[in-house]
Every structure is written in C-alpha cells, then in structure tokens.
C-alpha cells in the first residue's frame, strides 16, 4: 500500500519539494509584494485564484490531470471511513505511483485521453492555439515596432539614393505588358540590385501581417471583455519581470568571464544558479559544481573553444601551472 507513497517521498522528490520552498524565498518575495499591492483592491479574486491554484497543484502532485478530483477524494474518504485502524489502510488499493496502477476501478474510469472522442482527428486539434492574456500587449508592441521600421525605411535603407525610371507608373504597367515606353527601357534587374528593394519586400510582408495579427488579437481581447472573461495581464507581466532576474545573471556572467576567467565564472554561476533555483542540499550543490566543471572540460579543454585568457587570477599561480591553466581552462 505504502509502496507508491514511499516512492513519491523518496529522496529525489523531497529535494524537489525543498527546492520549491527555497526558490520561493529570494526573488519571489519581491514578486509577492508586487502581487499583493496589485491585487489589494480585489482581494477576493486574489483569494479565489489562490484556492484554484492550490487545487491545481494537488491534482498535479497526485497525477490526476484527467481525473475528477472530487470523485477521487470521495473514494479515498469512503475507503478511510471503512478502515478501523492504520493497519487496515493496506486494504485500500490506491497504487497511485506504481506500474500496476490503477487497480481501483474508480480511478481507471476517471482516465480520459486527450485524443478527441468524435471518431476522427482534426488537423486543427494538432495546431490548437488560443491567444493568451498578454497577447494583445505584445501584438501591439510588435505593430509599433513594424511601423517604426516602416518609417525608418526612408532613412535606413538607401532609399534616398534610389535610382528609378522617370515615369514609374508607365514603367510598372510596361512590366506587365500594358504601357509603352519610348526610348531605352531601364532593366528591371538594375532596380532589383538596389539596397532598398529587400527591405521594401520585407515590409510588404511585415506591415500587413502586423496589422492582421494586432486586429485578431484585439478581437480576442474584445471578446474576453464582452463576456467578462479575465483580461488582466499582470500575471504575465510578473513572469516577464521574473525572467529579467535571470537575464541579469547572464549579463553579469558575461561581464565576469573576462575578469575571473571562464573556469571560475562558470563554476560560480553553476553553483549559484543551483542554489538560486532552490536546490541547496550538498548533493545538489556538488551536482551543480560538477556539471559546470564538465561543461568547461568539454568546451574549453577538449574542444579548445577560445575564451578570455588574460586572467589576473592565473598570475598568482606558479609559471608551469599558469601555462597549463591558460591552455586548458
């Protein structure tokens, strides 16, 4: 009975749970503060979100992705009610994490495949896409960026020094066999060679696509608003801010490599990131350290990939050792 549960709370899983707890205390304090401030006027919604997230986490933890949580909890409850003491728990066939699972009929019935039940797979099922919250904001930003490049086209592509035929309208018609041009006709290839043609072609794809995309995104946004579906993008923005923390680590690492050397900075980052994401036991810190060392050995020592070598740190080493370190690390 306890086989599955024991496996679940194995050392590896315990570490993961601990990691989750640890990772919550550094960057997340900042994010929690922002969230609380943002949601303070609608604390009731915040509370509901928390409850639904807890339910979701419970489902996920128990691997009940496609199972009705209430039915299973009821089954467990019924089972527990029948048991008189702890020893009787063995009579409950809840092998949730075993290969033999699910023995219980209830659990087996609750499994549903993701495969559509209507007898045939539609191509759209494979490419199912739903615009998320934050989509409208990003689409708008991309539209603005596209418009910016369109404006820049006139100054940044050599458009000012363009060479075009005098009567462009007639020339274009002539290309399709309609207009007549007197005298020498400019070769079309001479126009194609000019530096602004490529950007023009690109903008001919980019601008309509940006408008089309922004329009579609706005329609989804308006639909959500109309039917009182959630439209707040704060959660997404929080995620974007959270990612910036790791972007900062990467930039810091980039700055540190020429100062401390590839070996030292990589080991530092490897250990720090392992600690930062919450894996703080000695075993995991050592795993982080070893993994970083292996990366250095493979790329710097074995593949001889060039990294900054004028490292002041190596100057403190004996000359023979210094030479070795400069060559291989």
């Amino acid at each position: 009975m306890y086989k599955g549960i024991k496996a679940y709370f194995s050392r590896h899983t315990r570490d993961k749970l601990e990691a989750k707890r640890h990772s919550a205390d550094v960057g997340s304090y900042f994010r929690s503060l922002i969230t609380t401030i943002i949601y303070w006027p609608r604390f009731d919604i915040y509370l509901l979100n928390m409850i639904s997230e807890m339910k979701y986490n419970l489902r996920k933890k128990l691997d009940l992705g496609y199972c009705n949580l209430e039915i299973l909890l009821k089954a467990i409850g019924d089972g527990l009610a029948k048991t008189k003491n702890k020893g009787d728990l063995n009579s409950l066939n809840l092998y949730l994490f075993d290969e033999q699972f699910p023995i219980s009929e209830n659990v087996q019935a609750s499994f549903e495949s993701e495969c559509p039940p209507d007898g045939k797979v539609k191509l759209d099922d494979l490419f199912a896409f739903k615009r998320k919250r934050g989509d409208f904001l990003f689409s708008s930003v991309l539209l603005i960026a596209a418009l910016f490049f369109m404006v820049s086209f006139f100054t940044e592509t050599g458009w000012q020094s363009r060479k075009l035929p005098n009567d462009l309208g007639t020339y274009v018609l002539h290309q399709f066999g309609f207009g007549e041009i007197e005298g020498k006709v400019v070769r079309f290839g001479r126009i194609l060679k000019q530096s602004w043609v490529g950007p023009l072609l690109c903008l001919m794809v980019l601008i309509p696509a940006a408008i089309w995309n922004a329009k579609s995104s706005f329609r989804v946004h308006r639909y959500r608003k109309r039917f009182l579906l959630p439209i707040s993008i704060r959660y997404e923005l929080e995620k974007y801010v959270a990612a910036l923390e790791y972007v900062a680590y990467f930039i810091l690492y980039t700055v540190l490599v020429p100062i401390l050397g590839y070996l030292m900075s990589t080991v530092l980052l490897g250990v720090f990131l392992t600690w930062r994401v919450g894996y703080r036991t000695t075993r995991w810190i050592l795993t982080g350290l070893l993994s970083s060392l292996i990366i250095v050995l493979v790329f710097r020592s074995f593949l001889q990939i060039k990294t900054p070598i004028s490292i002041w740190l190596y100057d403190f080493l004996p000359s023979a050792m210094r030479g070795f370190m400069l060559t291989y690390f």
Binding site: F250, T266, G270
Partner: peptide
C-alpha cells in the same frame, strides 16, 4: 535551465 544557460554562453 541553469545548465542550458551556461551552455548557451559558451
């Protein structure tokens, strides 16, 4: 994720 980040740099 941390390993992918280190590998990306190199």
């Amino acid at each position: 994720g941390s390993l992918v980040m280190i590998l990306s740099f190199v």
